[in-house]
Simulated assay, not measured.
Amino acid sequence: MDGLQLARRRAGTVGLGVAQPAPFTGAADVVGWFGALQSQDYHPAKWAVAQRLGPGITDTDLDRAFDDGVILRTHVLRPTWHFVTPADIRWLLELTAPRVHALNAYAYRVTDLDAGVLRRATDLIAEALAGGNHLTRTEVATMLNRNGITALRVRLGYILIHAELERVICSGPLKGKQHTYALLDERAPQAASLDREVALAELVRRFFTSHGPATEKDLSWWSSLTRADIATGLALAGDALESTEVDGLTYWSAPGDPPSPPPSPSVRLLQAYDEYIVGYTRSKHLLDLSGLVAAASDKLALPNGVITVDTQVAGRWKRTVRKDEVIVDAVLYRPFDVAESRSLQDAADELGGFLGARAVVAVSVL
């Protein structure tokens, strides 16, 4: 395979390669396919899920799934939020939390959060949430401050992250527009633990199946696992994965043919943290085989959404939601032809359908 073939296969495995019918039946299928789907920004992350489900799914549908606990949100893999399923949340945290704690160690020190303070804060939060009592970030902070633990801004953030990593809390249902926290044991009472080797094999298999072809270095960044752990996971995964070498790099993926691509040109409006964008470090160049992104890298104040044409990054975008319409400001790295422009409008209309608004596209070219 060459770089473009790798990129085409990858677009299929991340759920962007099939036109219709969509291969997933619901939000839990999408999130479970990846194991964890980055949700640093909640609203754009819902759009990433919706794009894998196809037309008909709405923003309200995914809020409902989130409120019902079909998908959960917590800090796992890296020091950022991810969507996870109730079935996966416990074993993923058990496997990766020690590494994330190590990454957070400096932040714990500079915010004066030693083991004793973190343990007491976690115990207080657990007591306050018991019995299905879902609290917002502000309400948690008020409770901690009342009990003598300063919980402001960054310090509060790391207190909450620590409690998530310790498998005590996770996301609760929305309270209006505010996110809440809930006890993990109450939100996902059937969440299973796995033997560490079983968990290693499963996470390695899940990543390369959902993100492949990808490299070990890609997985190391995505999961925070050591290269030694990844080597162990690959050995344990056995025939569930296969490798190929291209230009001196070894890429891993699940065996078999990838899904068929949609008709070209296929333009997509991806959120900045879509797994197709953030799932890779060593092999991120497959998104920019022609060097368009590199040529635009010195431009300032670009929107952070990513426009792709087929498998390649071709611009940036942002959305502005108004009462009855969503404005899509598209900044292109090169001019689009008629077919690509039509596909861009189709992508905006898909976003409009998701949000229940008419889509208006405004285009500029760098």
Rank of each mutant, 00 (worst) to 15 (best):
T150E: 14
D310C: 01
S224C: 06
E127A: 15
L366Q: 12
R109P: 04
T226W: 05
V204D: 03
L200C: 04
T136F: 13
L203I: 08
P265A: 08
D195G: 05
D112W: 09
Y251C: 03
R282D: 15
A330I: 13
T320G: 08
A192D: 15
I125E: 01
L113T: 10
Y181G: 10
L351Q: 01
A45P: 09
A359S: 06
P173A: 05
A231T: 14
V278S: 07
A231I: 04
S264C: 08
D329Q: 14
K177A: 15
K46M: 12
T232K: 14
G116Y: 05
E197V: 01
G12Y: 01
L124C: 05
A339E: 07
T96G: 05
R268F: 04
A130L: 11
P173M: 03
F336K: 01
A87H: 10
L16A: 08
D41H: 11
Q178D: 15
L156E: 14
K46H: 02
G248H: 02
A19R: 15
A27G: 00
S283I: 09
L366I: 13
S297R: 13
R319Q: 14
D41Y: 04
G291A: 06
R334P: 09
E245D: 10
F207T: 11
H134P: 05
D29H: 07
S193D: 10
P262T: 11
V267D: 12
K318E: 13
A50M: 08
M143Q: 10
